[in-house]
């Protein structure tokens, strides 16, 4: 039987076999070599991101100096001075504490409610229908739009804030958790049931860890929504007791045309957001989904 070229019909040319010793590889040096210090530093995410941050701050400082209008656009150094001043005299800490209390209540409340709703949704078809419909209705509804209603129901104060924060957290977290549960591989579900796991044990031991990447993403989004909603709500209805939160700090500073204070307030909001994202959530991710190889 003669072998022919598949396209041209030319017989394949017979070629001799050969064997040889592998080349001497010592010329390349160590097979595994450490990267140069600069390369290793550049491979560090934190270093690169800090670089981006510093570049932004430099641009801010340069632009503010060039614009030379402290009323509209204070420099980074003035903002930093105001920030440090208000931090040291306790104003900012006090405002932050006032803000964090309803934030924590609302965030935790929203997560607990989301956990209950999604557990119902995975255990029955009607539960899933209820959750999907509710999420579709309320997720696009801005929390601030519910604030007037909250004020009528609960009056000025923490209950109203908690209500709108729960509204902003609940739907986002439920939606991502349900999506996560639904994308758990069929084999994993079957093996869980094979061990005789049912009900809440099945959800806790199989579904939640398997869906954890999506759940964590939902928690992050929920956190951002909660923080946003809180600051916005404080801006709208201002002070409830004698000391308002960070939103009220910003609002007050605007009313008195103290622009560096407005910037310092915004700066604090950003700083807390960054801190939670890059310390708390990153630590959770490193301990869980990255260690498990579910996310790189």
């Amino acid at each position: 039987m003669s072998v022919t070229h598949p396209f041209k019909g030319v017989p394949a040319r017979p070629r001799p076999d050969f064997e040889c010793e592998p080349l001497d590889a010592s010329g390349i040096g160590d097979v595994e070599r450490r990267l140069s210090p600069i390369e290793r530093i550049l491979n560090n995410d934190a270093v690169r991101r800090a670089g981006v941050l510093i570049a932004l701050l430099v641009v801010w400082e340069l632009y503010a100096r060039w614009a030379d209008n402290p009323l509209l656009f204070p420099t980074f150094t003035t903002t930093l001075e105001t920030f440090v001043h208000d931090l040291l005299d306790g104003t900012l800490l006090d405002r932050t504490r006032t803000s964090l209390y309803p934030l924590a209540l609302g965030y935790v409340g929203g997560i607990v409610l989301a956990a209950i709703l999604t557990s119902l949704a995975v255990s029955s078809r009607i539960g899933a229908d209820i959750l999907t419909t509710l999420t579709a209705m309320f997720n696009p509804l801005p929390a601030i739009a519910v604030l007037p209603l909250a004020l009528i129901w609960f009056g000025l104060g923490i209950p109203s804030l908690v209500f709108v924060i729960i509204h902003s957290v609940l739907w986002a977290v439920s939606l991502s958790t349900l999506t996560g549960f639904r994308s758990v591989p069929e084999t994993l579900r079957l093996s869980g049931r094979n061990y005789g796991l049912k009900g809440i044990r099945y959800v806790a031991l199989i579904l939640i860890p398997a869906a954890f990447p999506t759940i964590l993403a939902g928690l992050k989004i929920g956190w951002a929504f909660a923080w946003r909603t809180l600051v916005a709500a404080e801006l709208v209805f201002g002070v409830s007791s004698r000391s308002g939160g960070l939103g009220w700090y910003i609002f007050e500073a605007r009313a008195q045309l103290e622009t560096p204070k407005v910037f310092a307030g915004l700066f604090t909001v950003i700083l807390i957001g960054l801190l939670v994202e890059s310390v708390i959530f990153r630590a959770i991710a490193a301990k869980t989904i990255q260690k498990w190889g579910m996310q790189r």
Partner: peptide, 20 residues
């Protein structure tokens, strides 16, 4: 009547191990 550990399944896919 229902799944149980007296009949252990080994599946085709590799996802049967718990990544966590």
């Amino acid at each position: 009547r229902e799944p149980g550990p007296d009949r252990m399944m080994v599946f085709q896919e590799f996802e049967q191990l718990m990544p966590w």
